[in-house]
Design a protein around this nucleic acid. Structure first.
Lengths: 153, 153
DNA sequence: TTCTTTGCAAATTCTTTGCACCGAA
DNA sequence: TTCGGTGCAAAGAATTTGCAAAGAA
């Protein structure tokens, strides 16, 4: 089932309507795989005046629906919401480079085990988790060490 | 070394000044152990008119300094900044109850190992991490199941 | 027709900034 | 006396909401 089909099922089950804006946003969001925030999505969309223009409030409202429908994942980074594909995409966690703000995905089976063990220990009903490792990626580390060498000259 | 003493060293090393507000906030912050956000701290402080009143901008500025000084840890939750003791407090992660918004601490040695392995694999310089498990705590789960039973009556 | 959705403008929430005066060293 | 610090008011950034008009079913 494509994301669009899946979303249409979701809308039907909730008695909601499938509008042009929603169809267009599904297309825009699932066309590319990168992580994005509301602002980056807005920039990718046609600007005011274009027939397929979508307003900012609608973008926010629709992103929330995509999350509710299980199409997207949302998490917080530097105080804003970041989205990524969820539907049909394997579970993973992230490395976050604080220099270039790049998100690198990784998978670890152990994480899920730890989550289960800890939850059992605390009688906690786990639904989800966020594991983000902050640091500096290889490229940025190299750039910075080069810069430091140049500074000394 | 007490948090205050440690902070005084930090201020001296940076050529900054130890004001009444800073001393007072250290006291207020390290008096209790719970997690808190800027708003909760403001509520705990004397209100305008009191001689030891501290303004909201100063609270924000000082919290940032406490983080820089290594006294507090900051992380994002539901779009706002949450603080907890860092200085003299062991590394740990959190369970977050989405019903009562309680944060429960847990420790796991394995987390750090995973973090090291993954970082090595991606040539990533890890500095820090955030691992938060979202779900429902035992008390809330009990309350909710009780409520559901009552609903049926 | 009915009821949801949209775009606009404005409001909210959390946090930061400019600036004149205050105060620690 | 010299900067750094504070409070005030205002600005910012991200997101949400009220409402009248538009549109799907």
């Amino acid at each position: 089932m494509t994301p669009l089909q899946r979303f249409e099922e979701y809308l039907k089950s909730k008695g909601l309507r499938n509008t042009d804006q929603r169809k267009f946003l599904i297309e825009q969001v699932f066309n590319r795989h990168e992580h994005f925030d509301a602002d980056q999505l807005m920039e990718q969309l046609p600007s005011k005046g274009d027939p397929s223009y979508v307003s900012r409030p609608t973008v926010y409202r629709t992103l929330r629906e995509f999350v509710d429908a299980g199409l997207l994942n949302r998490f917080e980074l530097d105080g804003r919401s970041v989205y990524e594909h969820d539907y049909g995409y394997p579970q993973h966690d992230h490395l976050y480079c604080t220099k270039c703000r790049k998100l690198i995905e990784f998978t670890s089976v152990e994480i899920v085990k730890i989550r289960e063990n800890v939850s059992k220990l605390h009688r906690f009903r786990a639904r989800d988790h966020r594991f983000i490792i902050h640091g500096v990626c290889d490229e940025c580390a190299k750039l910075r060490s080069r810069d430091r060498r140049q500074d000394r000259v």
